[in-house]
Design a protein around this nucleic acid. Structure first.
Lengths: 225, 225
DNA sequence: ATCATAATTTAGTCTTACCTAATTTTTCTA
DNA sequence: TAGAAAAATTAGGTAAGACTAAATTATGAT
């Protein structure tokens, strides 16, 4: 029997996973920022999580942390639940894609293994959530995509949107209004020399959209229409 | 802006509501038993909840507690969510009625007002949950029924089941197997003189079932088929 | 009316997870 | 290769919500 982990701890592990996906390690300050708590509190918790049996992460003073396999397993389980919930809310309860992140952030901790199974089945075992993020399967394997980002498109080149950033409702509403969702094919029309702002065309509708370089770097695409 | 109440406090208020529905007041020990914590802890919490602004309950040493209007409002909100979730799990996710209580016990605390609204709408604004318990509406008004209990039936008299006890999965599985669910019409065939065990007939199917007096007292019915 | 028992409360701790302030370590720049 | 700035850690504290043990109050049977 495995001891139930607190919501807090689950959130730490999830965040560490997300941060180290881009970088291999997560630093105390990054975590403090992401979880909106003080760095001192983070240090305490990291030390604690490195001393459990089994340990959830590997901690070296002043050098960031890395999840153990066990820690990663837990992180992936939470991420799976989070994304299943997002997909469920959109597909079955009429949510828009900008409403689901916050809701899932809470519900992911209240989801039993049974509910996870039933929702997964009700959705037909989906591989991606509404933002195009991959949903780890029952064994926590993640559907692989091989994306680059919108920012790296050449002028005149086409691509297909794979995923968009999922946290900020405002951004999501903007993208939604432009018709920029996963699966949509686009072409880069132009890039301003000074600030790299991109003009792109949605191929199906012919609509145009303006995307700054920051946001462009957070939108994953595959090359080709 | 109202301060968010902890899950714990929500559980206290809900339990007090349920206990005082049958009795007007809830005692420290009843609460300790129902919440599975020590009586001393309950005393502490009751004192705390009676000193909030506004107070959630009225506390007199050694004489039990009673919810204030505010306390009752919160209790009913949780109960509404609990029952909506139960109905949702059965109707939309293929749960059986013995699986839903425990699940709802957790989810009720993770449910946003928006989710409550969407689920309510998806179900067509149901008035009763799978066990026949009334679901408070958006304004927390409770559909009234005027039930008596199975135990009070006379021999040969007919009745229609209104609600069954909802917590114990074993009991629910037994009742389910017998076909005893809300809406079903029954007739009392006999009662043993010694222990008052009842034999009843389900009118639609002709099936017979045996119900002890304790369980019989927890099954609500309306008189007449 | 008394006394045993049951119910409740008080007092004192513990754990979890957070905080701020002060200190130490690392990193970056001149 | 200092020394400043940034990052991380330590130390000491707080609030919630639980606990046990001891004390008090209420109740019910003779």
């Amino acid at each position: 029997m495995v001891k139930a982990l607190s919501h807090n701890i689950q959130d730490y592990l999830k965040q560490i996973y997300q941060l180290s996906a881009a970088g291999g390690k997560a630093s105390t300050n990054q975590l403090a920022e992401a979880l909106d708590i003080s760095a001192a509190s983070v240090t305490n918790m990291l030390q604690k999580l490195s001393k459990t049996q089994p340990p959830y992460l590997i901690y070296h003073k002043h050098h960031g942390v890395q999840l153990t396999d066990e820690g990663q397993r837990i992180a992936l389980k939470i991420i799976r639940r989070h994304r299943l919930i997002e997909e469920f809310l959109v597909k079955k309860l009429g949510y828009t894609w900008d409403e689901v992140h916050e809701e899932a952030e809470v519900l992911e901790h209240a989801m039993s293994p049974l509910l996870e199974k039933r929702i997964d089945a009700a959705l037909g075992f989906p591989e991606f959530d509404p933002h195009g993020d991959p949903i780890p399967d029952v064994n926590l394997n993640i559907p692989q995509t091989n994306p680059t980002t919108l920012r790296s498109l050449e002028i005149g080149q086409t691509g297909r949107i794979i995923r968009v950033p999922h946290e900020d409702p405002q951004v999501l509403r903007y993208l939604g209004k432009c018709g920029l969702r996963p699966g949509v094919s686009i072409k880069l029309l132009s890039r301003t020399p000074y600030d790299q702002t991109m003009r792109i065309e949605i191929l199906d509708t012919g609509d145009k959209a303006i995307i700054g370089p920051d946001l462009g770097g957070q939108i994953s695409i595959s090359i080709g229409a």
